[in-house]
Every structure is written in C-alpha cells, then in structure tokens.
Amino acid sequence: MKALTMRWYKLRQSAWLKPRNSVIAIPYLWLLLFFLVPFVIVLKISFAEAQIAIPPYTDLITLANDQLSININLGNFVWLFNDDLYFSAYLSSIRIALVSTLFCLLIGYPMALAISRAPASSRNVLLLLVILPSWTSFLIRIYAWIGILKPNGYINNALMAMGVIDTPIVMLHTDFAVYVGIVYAYLPFMILPLYANMMKLDHSLVEASSDLGASPVTTLFKVIIPLTKAGIIAGCMLVFIPAVGEFVIPELLGGPETLMIGKILWEEFFNNRDWPVASAVAIIMLALLILPIMWFDRYQNKQMEEQS
C-alpha cells in the first residue's frame, strides 16, 4: 500500500515538474540562443580570415577533396597586438571610462544622498527628475552638447560676448567633450543604485554615529559610505562597463585623436568590412570586461537573494 502511494506521489511530482520545466525552458532557450551562442560565433569568426564574399570571412572547417581541414587563423590577434593603434585604443578606452566613472560617482553620490535625505513627499519627484532624461533620446542628449561645445556654440558665444575670450576655446572633438558626454549620459545610472542602497540604510546607524560624537563628515566616511558599498559598486559597473565600449559619444563628441575601442570596432566592421578583425576586437574587449561583468553579476544576484 505504502509503495503504491509512493509511486502515485512520484507520478504526480513528475507531472508537476513537466510544466515547470517548460516554463523554465522558454526564457532559457531564448537567451541561450540569442545571447550566449552569438558570443561563441564571435569567437569562431575572430579566428577566420577576411575575404571578399558573402559572408565576408573564411570557414574554419572546410571539407575539400575528402580532406577535413581546420584553419585557425591567429593573424587577427597577432595584428591587434602588434599594432599600437589597438593597444592604445584599449588603454585610452579604459582611462576615459575610469575617469568618467569617477566623476559620475563624485557628482552622483551627493545627489543620491540629498534625494534620500529629502522629505518623503518630494523624494519621488526628485528621483523622477533624475531618471527622466534617460527616458528621452540618448542620441539627442549627446547631440545637445555639440551645440554647446562647438567653436561657435553657446559657451564660446557667451564667453566672447562677455569679453572673457577673444578666440573660441576648442572643446568639441576633444577628450574633454567625451568625458562630459559620458558623465552626462550615464549619471542617472550611477544615482539609481546609490539611491536604492541609501534608502535601505538604517537611519538609526547614522544617528548612533552622531550620538557617539562623530561629526557629519566622519559619519559619512565611517558609516554611510562603507554601508553603501554595494550601491557604489553597482553604480560604477553600470557606468564603467558600457562606457568602455561606447561608440556614439566618441563618434559625435570626440576628435580624430580620441581612441575608443567601440569606435574602432564600428569602423573595422562598417568602414573596412573586416568582420574577423572586428570580432577579434570584440573578443579582447570582452576579455577585459569579463571580470567587471562577473563582479556586477555577483552583486546583482546577492541583491536579489537578499530581497527574497
């Protein structure tokens, strides 16, 4: 009798498992096919050679005259490592992304702090005001800076009208403009996780610190900042990782000497039509970013687990 019930129970359990598995399978397969598999293909093509054909690259595995041959071409990577252009592009991408992230943090942290300290009634409006720009067009917000920074743009016109300068300052098409653009575009992504983290902070900890004789500045550095570390990491990753691969901002605001890897990849692909080199550029970018991405992933998962 007992065995029978057990079997019935198992049967029911496996039946219950079936729809469950298909529910898991739908998003799983989609993301596997359209997110993970593409990277394998990029890796594959980075080992191919460019050729004038459709598609414009050679096959790794060919079957000709009953001979199966695998052609792994390391030429693209050798090329990337030997050419100074690529190496300095990687370096300057990381430098630009790091500096921009730092500025985002320096501007965003006090802003997030001020919003979290605001009266509950105005908090939502302030947060909305911070996010709102990111819902309008990214491209157009970057475009706005062309008019502001160009030689006969608003800043130069105003300064010349006031007599501060005689000749326009060159700001557009410089690294400076790229910094401004990245900070401007990504600031909301820094503030959001910081704010979310600060709202979770138990305010009595801040009061306890003050009660024990710590000045507001000491409290900020000894209590508030250490306890919002998770938000700082998330915010920095949300800015740094996409900024490394940024294309639109260096293209529109940067100059010819602004080397950023996203722009190089774009040019290899669209202008030179060299898909294998573009793939190799992407693979190296991924290799550089894989650690920050995993760090971000781990943080996000920890957040999700803490919540539930």
Partner: peptide
C-alpha cells in the same frame, strides 16, 4: 544571462547578434 546584458557594451551585442 539576465544581468549581463544590462552592462554589455552595445557594439558587442550588436556584432554578436549580426554574426548569429
């Protein structure tokens, strides 16, 4: 696979999907 696209540089996502 859910969190990585949030930060993945767009040029990589675009290129990889095209190649797919």
């Amino acid at each position: 696979m859910i969190t990585a696209p949030l930060v993945m540089p767009e040029v990589i996502t675009g290129l990889s999907l095209l190649l797919l």
